[in-house]
């Protein structure tokens, strides 16, 4: 069997299973990113709050998560949490990935919030808006738009990192690759095929992101040209 025949046979034999596994990869990534966004926003607010205890709490969280290899975090949470409450593998994996990405998102959101001109806050507050109202209607929309390129980057990293939950028995794309290559003794060809699945996913995601970025480009060049 030559190289191309091997590739074809892998696709014939595992193609559908890979595709199904891809949906698990997508859903665990999506769930983890929702968790990460919530965590990221909360800790970003902590960091810009100027309240000592909250700032330190955020620093501690970011220090721990950034300092640990993701696989250690996944194992720790999987065995740690499952000794207290029983979580499905999927949920445990999504939570671990979410906690991990959350630390990076917190820094991205913090930077974006602080990059919004101070005058925006002053203008809103001087109209009588409360701090939370100012944050939600004036600061965050502008910060979010600026954060999109960095967010996209982090989301793509999150997508790829989801491969690590294969080690806690979540049957996503990479775990299927592990199983398949163990069966067919063709690891190189198998991972090559799986690699293309990941590339395709990232490509679709990137296009989606560009679309969102253009849509949100209010008041910028894009919008003006349309008018």
């Amino acid at each position: 069997m030559n190289f191309f025949e091997s590739i074809v046979s892998i696709i014939q034999k595992h193609g559908t299973a890979f595709l199904e596994a891809t949906t698990i990869t997508i859903s665990i990534t999506a769930v983890s990113l929702v968790i990460a966004t919530v965590i990221g926003l909360v800790f970003a607010f902590f960091k810009v709050s100027n309240i000592w205890i909250l700032v330190k709490l955020a620093d501690l969280y970011i220090f721990i998560v950034r300092g640990l290899p993701l696989i250690v975090l996944i194992m720790f949470l999987y065995y740690g949490i499952s000794s207290v409450i029983v979580l499905s593998d999927f949920i445990a994996g999504a939570v671990a990935l979410g906690i991990h990405s959350g630390a990076y998102l917190a820094e991205i959101f913090r930077g974006a919030i602080q990059s919004v001109d101070r005058g925006q806050n002053e203008a809103a507050r001087s109209l009588g808006m409360t701090a939370p109202l100012t944050m939600s209607t004036i600061i965050l929309p502008q910060a979010f738009k600026r954060a999109i390129p960095a967010l996209g980057n982090q989301f793509i990293i999150g997508l790829k990192d989801s491969s690590l939950v294969a080690y806690i028995a979540v049957t996503e794309l990479f775990s299927h690759a592990l199983t398949a290559s163990a069966e067919n003794y063709m690891p190189f060809e198998t991972y090559l095929v799986v690699g293309f699945y990941y590339l395709a996913l990232v490509l679709i995601f990137t296009l989606l992101l560009n679309y969102v970025e253009n849509r949100l480009d209010t008041g910028g060049v894009g919008k003006k040209l349309k008018k």
Binding site: G119, E122, A123, S126, P141, Q142, G219
Partner: peptide, 12 residues
């Protein structure tokens, strides 16, 4: 009411 040197309109 407060008016600023840099206007500070909400650009979005």
């Amino acid at each position: 009411g407060m008016i600023f040197q840099q206007f500070n309109l909400f650009p979005h």
